[in-house]
Design a protein around this nucleic acid. Structure first.
Length: 545
RNA sequence: GCCGGGGUGGUGUAGUGGUCAGCACGGGGGCCUGUGGAGCCCCAGGCCCGGGUUCAAUUCCCGGCCCCGGCCCCA
């Protein structure tokens, strides 16, 4: 009787790593270690779980449902969803030698999130990250970004997209416009959702207007498009109903902007009959409505940011913020645009100059070809300055392999000294995926180079002693533990990928020799141990790779 | 939460409303006694679960579970 199948089943989103798979991971991890140590970073390790509150401190109670939480007699614990907070805890509690400031540390280890798995997303995933703690200067930001691109280069991965933004600029702008500090995070999050929705709508629009015939979208995309439009329609109609009932806070004067448009119900038909122009028109309208709706809500309902506290954003501020977030392009285009929009004075000007310096420092490190993108707002609230992301577009939905930025307040918020910091994390699984998809996985190394075959039991003694000698001289050697027949052993040696077999029978034992057989050429010679070792080394060095 | 595509020995697969569900690799055993890296022979092992349709379901239908993708969200 076998065991109940269900107890053997791996929990959802977890994976085993057989040797072939593990080899790819080790390859990536080793590359990462080598690059980071080249820059003087040292590896650390933190526990796999910590107090739940440590992770909730910054991200809020809401993330409970996205983590693995369990209770113990010491209170609630959570499997770590990321490693920045534990590192900050380590620093804040004085575990690191601050006289070596800036601290340069890195980690590679598993993290856990209670999410629905899909391609490139698992409940247990590996992160490799860097934290540079104690330098407030732009060259620190630049070095950290350089580390990330250097790892990708060393892995031979091409076609990545590096986008850089700056939270300090955005925060300074909002503060200058009179937005309360605590409200800033409440604004940035939803704004990110808004801009990414607009991006999607714009993308569909482009695809439709480029192709005049055929099916440019595919069923998945089409249904997403319809869903998004319908979502906007729903929001809009809710508001109109409220207006009719006199319950809306938005003045009736805006009613015209929110007028219903029956075409949303016919999007599928329109698509099937090829009326793409019509759909584009609907998309334009919907995008505009979404902006107006959000703007009006924020202006008249306000944004809640604490118990009983709301901030009502003036429409001009909203417009300017949208404009700021939409700035994107190469540095020599984006920076002038930023200056034009924000000016050079006050905190905003300072933040902008700081951002420029970071980008300039990046060029000293030889990093080119990035995009300035003010809309990248990393989900986590603790970022205070430069933020960046690296994507491989060919990975599809889970294309982001790296994300990071500056977090100058975190250590202090954990009760430690005031230490500015900048860091990032790689998704190791996704790096492996990217490597596979671009055919850059190095060929697997065979289990051993030399396979020793004792022909009979009497020579086991001699064969094993000889194997030990081979190993002592650095040769990766297996000695057969299977007592099989010679021809089967040869077949196995071949399958294992060994380059050479060493055959040992009574003859060899008697003469004190080893018969070395080249498994490719099938040539063989009998030599005394020392010479055999030399011969093997020459063969291994001489052959391919 | 939503939308697709799938579940056949350990792995990869073929196939069928009704005989014994086929093949490859892998596993176990045998012939073969130091290179015949092969070959041959034998053995073990499978239609995800539950309902329905039917004389008969692994096959058709429905539901569930699971896996794989995509959307949302995130890293």
């Amino acid at each position: 009787m076998g065991l109940e199948k269900s107890i053997l089943r791996l929990p959802r989103g977890l994976r085993d790593f057989p040797p072939e798979e593990m080899a790819k991971f080790s390859y990536v991890e080793n590359k990462i270690r080598r690059v980071l140590e080249l820059y003087g970073y040292q590896e650390v390790r933190t526990p796999i779980f910590e107090r739940f509150d440590l992770f909730a401190l910054r991200s809020g109670e809401e993330i409970r449902s996205r983590m693995f939480v369990f209770s113990t007699d010491e209170g609630e614990m959570a499997l770590r969803p990321e490693v920045t907070a534990p590192i900050a805890r380590m620093v804040a509690t004085g575990k690191l030698d601050l006289s070596k400031k800036p601290l340069k540390i890195y980690y590679i280890g598993p993290c856990y999130r209670y999410d629905e798995p899909q391609a490139g997303r698992y409940r247990e995933f590996w992160q490799a990250g860097v934290e540079l703690i104690g330098s407030p200067y732009p060259e620190a930001d630049a070095e950290v970004i350089r580390l990330a691109t250097r790892v990708l280069e060393e892995l031979g991965l091409e076609g990545y997209v590096l986008r850089i933004g700056d939270m300090a600029v955005i925060r300074a702008f909002l503060t200058q416009e009179g937005v309360p500090e605590e409200a800033v995070n409440r604004i940035i999050g939803p704004l990110d959702v808004l801009t990414s929705s607009l991006d999607k709508l714009r993308m569909y629009r482009e695809k439709l207007s480029e192709a005049n015939s055929g099916r440019p979208l595919g069923p998945d995309k089409l249904s997403d498009l319809i869903r998004r439009c319908d979502e906007i329609r729903r929001l809009k109609e809710e508001e109109l109903l409220k207006m009719d009932a006199g319950e809306s806070l938005i003045p009736k004067a805006y009613e015209g902007l929110l007028e219903p448009d029956p075409r949303v119900y016919r999007l599928k038909e329109l698509y099937e009959e090829g009326s793409f122009d019509e759909i584009c028109d609907v998309l334009d309208k919907k995008a505009e409505e979404l902006v107006v709706l959000t703007k009006l809500r924020w202006a008249y309902y306000g944004v809640e940011y604490g118990p009983g506290q709301t901030y009502k954003m003036p429409e001009e501020v909203f417009d300017k913020l949208m404009e700021l977030m939409s700035i994107s392009g190469p540095g020599d285009e984006a920076l002038p645009a930023l200056e034009k929009l924000l000016g050079r004075s006050g905190q905003v000007g300072q933040a902008l100059s700081r951002f420029e310096e970071a980008l300039k420092a990046l060029s000293w490190f030889g990093v080119e070809g990035f995009t300035v993108d003010m809309s990248i707002v990393r989900g986590l609230e603790y970022y205070t300055g430069t933020v960046f992301e690296i994507d491989f577009p060919f990975l599809g939905a889970q294309k982001q392999v790296c994300g990071g930025g500056r977090y100058d307040k975190l250590v202090e918020e954990f009760g430690g000294p005031s230490l500015p910091a900048v860091g990032f994390a790689f998704g190791v699984d996704r790096l492996v995926l990217a490597l596979e998809r671009s055919g850059k996985v190095p060929p697997a190394r065979p289990r051993c180079d030399v396979y020793v075959i004792p022909i009979s039991e009497e020579v086991l003694d001699y064969a094993i002693r000889a194997s030990e000698q081979l190993r002592s001289s650095g040769l990766r050697t297996e000695v057969s533990l299977s007592r099989r027949k010679l021809r089967e052993e040869l077949s196995i040696a071949d399958k294992l990928g060994a380059r050479l077999a060493i055959i040992i029978g009574p003859r060899e034992a008697e003469e004190g020799k080893l018969t070395v057989r080249d498994l490719e050429t099938r040539e063989q010679v009998s030599l005394p141990l020392k010479e055999a070792i030399r011969h093997v080394k020459a063969a291994l060095a001489g052959g391919k790779t």
